[in-house]
């Protein structure tokens, strides 16, 4: 996969992100932030990746895999906690009582 291809995807996603978020009402700033924060926990995929591919690469001892485990631990807290806390907040946002 060439780097140009990845940079193109990156640039397009940044613009898409700008388009999606502009004009978000102030009311939603906190849940938007915690929800998008949970999405940034996508690095969980990378953590799973290094933990699974590592062994085939070389004999590097267990330390890198323990670090990978810490990464996975952090990312999982980020993902699970982020989505749950956003859900909690959003369930409290109500419109006018009818």
């Amino acid at each position: 996969m060439t780097i140009i291809y990845l940079i193109t995807i990156f640039a397009m996603s940044v613009f898409l992100g700008f388009e999606l978020i502009t004009k978000v009402p102030a009311t939603l700033h906190t849940p938007l932030m915690s929800g998008s924060n949970a999405i940034s926990g996508i690095t969980i995929v990378g953590a799973i990746g290094v933990l699974l591919t590592g062994l085939a690469v070389a004999d590097v001892g267990i330390v890198p895999f323990l670090l990978g485990g810490v990464a996975l631990f952090f990312a999982t807290i980020n993902v699970v906690g982020g989505f749950v806390v956003s859900h909690r907040m959003l369930s409290k946002f109500r419109g006018r009582r009818s």
Binding site: I3, S13, V14, L16, L20, T22, S36, I39, T43, V45
Partner: peptide, 22 residues
């Protein structure tokens, strides 16, 4: 970019952009 993984790039840059706007 390190791993050459597209979903990390897309999700990460979406969040990066939204944080910049905030």
């Amino acid at each position: 970019f390190v791993l050459g993984n597209i979903v990390l790039i897309i999700a990460g840059s979406l969040v990066g952009a939204s944080g910049i706007i905030l």
